[in-house]
Structures are given as structure tokens and as C-alpha cells.
């Protein structure tokens, strides 16, 4: 290679580098990290009762033949507030929703539920976020559809909106 071409090498390298940056910017779906637990049984876990009037959550609760939603949330999570009305309506339609509150505390949860309503039949307190990691969940809110045998059939990342309800109900119906 002649010296002349060699001198253009840095320019070429920077060009390649910027092409990579460009591609990175064009794929902004960075934050969505799918769980590889979908299709597998719910991992063993147990989260102690967060509220005095609701039981805590263990993986054994999911194997009684009834499909459920497992909602990973937190009282400090602002988007979680938005999905509570939707979850409440689903609860009225007979869906059983199990809540796992991550990095949370009972007093803060009491305030959260008093202000927004309580769509949960059980609420477990996942203090260290260990259970959340076991589910393969990387953020809040996330909602899992768990079938009657305790197998995760679907992971919903982000806020559950009205548009998502038919899909979730359909999956719950099939997951007997």
C-alpha cells in the first residue's frame, strides 16, 4: 500500500465507525429485553406478603389449574399507575392477577393501592428484586401470562393498555 493510501486509513476507519453508530441509532428498541423464560415453568420463588390483608406469592400458587396474570410492578413506578385502571377492569371480568412489587416497602404500597385501587388477589414483596430476575424481567411494569400448570406462556413488556386486553384475555382463555 502506498503511503498516500495509508494516510487515508484513519479517515476510512472513522467512516466505518460512524456507520456503526448510524445503525445503532436506527435501532432504538434497545430497552426491550425479552425473557427467555417464556415457554418454561415459573421458577421457584417465594415473596412474603406485602399487605396484611392479602397473602404473599410463591411459585406453588400457580399450579392449581387456573391461569393467571403475574404483574411485576412497584409503587415508585410512575407508568405502573397508568395500567391499574385496566387491570381493575380485567379483575372485574374474572381474571386473577398476582402482583409482585419489586424494591418496595409495605407503607409505600399501601399508599399506592389506596390512591389507585387494588387489582391484586395476592401481593408479594420482592425486596431484593431476586424474583424479578428469576422471571427474566428487566423492568417495571411487566406482565406475564401463566397457565394452570405454572408455565409462562407470554411476556408483556411495559404498560398494559386497553388495546392489549383482548390479546391477554385470549391467551388466558387458551391457557387452561
Amino acid at each position: 500500500m502506498s503511503r498516500k493510501l495509508l494516510l487515508w486509513l484513519p479517515f476510512a476507519l472513522v467512516f466505518v465507525l460512524f456507520a456503526v453508530f448510524w445503525l445503532g441509532l436506527k435501532n432504538p428498541d434497545d430497552r426491550i429485553i425479552a425473557s427467555n423464560m417464556v415457554g418454561k415453568p415459573l421458577p421457584e420463588f417465594s415473596a412474603r406478603a406485602a399487605m396484611p390483608d392479602r397473602p404473599g406469592v410463591t411459585s406453588a400458587d400457580f399450579t392449581d389449574g387456573k391461569p393467571r396474570l403475574l404483574n411485576v410492578f412497584a409503587s415508585w413506578c410512575v407508568p405502573c399507575v397508568r395500567e391499574v385502571p385496566v387491570l381493575l377492569r380485567m379483575q372485574q371480568q374474572g381474571v386473577e392477577i398476582v402482583g409482585v412489587a419489586v424494591h418496595d416497602s409495605s407503607p409505600a404500597l399501601a399508599t399506592f393501592l389506596a390512591q389507585n385501587g387494588n387489582p391484586y388477589d395476592r401481593i408479594g414483596l420482592d425486596e431484593g428484586g431476586r424474583a424479578q430476575i428469576e422471571f427474566g424481567s428487566s423492568g417495571v411494569p411487566e406482565t406475564f401470562v401463566v397457565d394452570g400448570k405454572g408455565r409462562i406462556v407470554h411476556q408483556h413488556i411495559g404498560v398494559v393498555t386497553e388495546q392489549d386486553v383482548p390479546q391477554l384475555l385470549g391467551m388466558l382463555g387458551k391457557a387452561q
Binding site: L7, W8, P10, F11, V14, F15, F18, F21, W22, L25
Partner: peptide, 16 residues
């Protein structure tokens, strides 16, 4: 990124 391309690319082209 566009700014960087202009400045760094420009300087390296001038260098070459």
C-alpha cells in the same frame, strides 16, 4: 453524529 462526521472526517481528510 453529523457534526462529528464533519469535524473528525474533515480533520482527517485534511490530515491525509
Amino acid at each position: 453524529l453529523a457534526l462529528l462526521a464533519i469535524y473528525i472526517g474533515g480533520a482527517l481528510a485534511l490530515f491525509a
